[in-house]
Design a protein around this nucleic acid. Structure first.
Lengths: 204, 204
DNA sequence: AATTATAAGTTGACACTGCTTACTTCTATG
DNA sequence: CATAGAAGTAAGCAGTGTCAACTTATAATT
């Protein structure tokens, strides 16, 4: 209905439309419902139309995944601005994103960029960059003057592992019924962190 | 060719055959190649035959997933027997399983038991039990006389989160190119753990 | 301005998938 | 020995990923 959008061209920006439709289907009906034909239908276009913009179904998934990485990164950036140096807040922001977008989050780490496929090379590269920006953001988040780069990198990976693990377990419903369920996201992260700090002592 | 196996029945233990064929396809060609028809073909039966043993495709996946949980649990049990009280060894065993069976491991936490579906109720229940045994095994692994049950549960979840996170990142190729790559699995786990113990200091 | 090249979308088809219904066959039990 | 019921088959529907051949609208060129 908006005049400005329609004027673009014979058909609007179909690639964007397909990606957004795909994202919506993914979030509302899950990965199994996400098909190229369905997305094409959603955009009122023929079943083969998407192939003018994506070489593959995989390429569409990569594009959606890229969108996710960008959004997650921006959330971490926001959290860093609002509470600079507060790594707990960043962890909470990360976890919130995962919990609010379970299907998307799972997709991001399932149809992974690193995996070797023949899919659309450009999209793959852009997605990979978005992913690396995320890693960078995480590293910046725990930047420390007193340690060197290598240590910082490992620190980042360790922290990320914990948050990623909690996110996955939360998404998969493993936390349901556990004491974790009662806590807020921020508290979950804090608790896990404090337990790690205090160390886990085994019997022996 | 073996006489004893053929004598079982009109057709052997098809349910088991299908599950094993499914596992093999999953590991060798990935989740996308894993279809009911393909598995049926692999077991030399008609396309609809599996439906006498699985209500759903999902039910087959649940069965395969259950197999995975049982195997992982047994590995953790072994590790505990061989090196009682050595939680690092358990973590390494866990990580090894994930790295050796990436597709299976991903499936286990993707087609999760907790998710609400109409699938084969029995299989779902058995799989859920296998899963809970795993949680129990993990909790037993870090059992501690000095802390109460609730704390122990949270400790287990925290430790699990870390190992699960490292496993996922490793599977997804995120660790490739990082300092982690140089280390053995056991060392990866130890390193992450030690970093957590020492704490991560932020600038502020 | 008319022509042409090309990007974008359509049509129709193939092989494959999950799943269902109706049918057959074997096996175990009364 | 008869037969109920479990196990497997056959045929078919709707949906899917993908491709080749075709059409059309836009952009570029003369």
């Amino acid at each position: 209905m908006t005049t400005s959008e329609k004027a673009t061209y014979h058909h609007g920006d179909l690639k964007k439309a397909l990606t957004e439709a795909g994202l919506q289907v993914l979030q509302q009906e899950g990965l199994n419902a996400l098909s190229l034909r369905r997305v094409a239908r959603e955009a009122s276009v023929s079943p083969a139309a998407p192939y003018r913009h994506f070489t593959d179904k995989h390429a569409l998934l990569i594009a959606i995944s890229e969108h996710g990485f960008t959004e997650l990164e921006s959330r971490l950036r926001d959290s860093k601005e609002n509470r600079p140096g507060d790594i707990d807040a960043s962890g909470a922001a990360y976890l919130s994103f995962a919990i609010e977008n379970p299907e998307l989050y799972r997709l991001m780490f399932t149809q992974n960029i690193m995996r070797e496929t023949e899919a659309d090379h450009d999209a793959k590269e852009r997605s990979r960059e978005a992913f690396l920006r995320l890693v960078e953001t995480i590293e910046n988040g725990i930047q420390n003057n007193h340690i060197e780069d290598t240590q910082c990198h490992m620190l980042a990976l360790s922290a990320w592992s914990l948050v990623h693990g909690v996110s996955m377990l939360a998404i998969d419903g493993v936390l349901a019924g556990s004491p974790f369920e009662e806590l807020s996201h921020s508290q979950i992260f804090k608790t896990a962190q404090s337990y790690f700090k205090n160390g886990w002592r085994s019997k022996k």
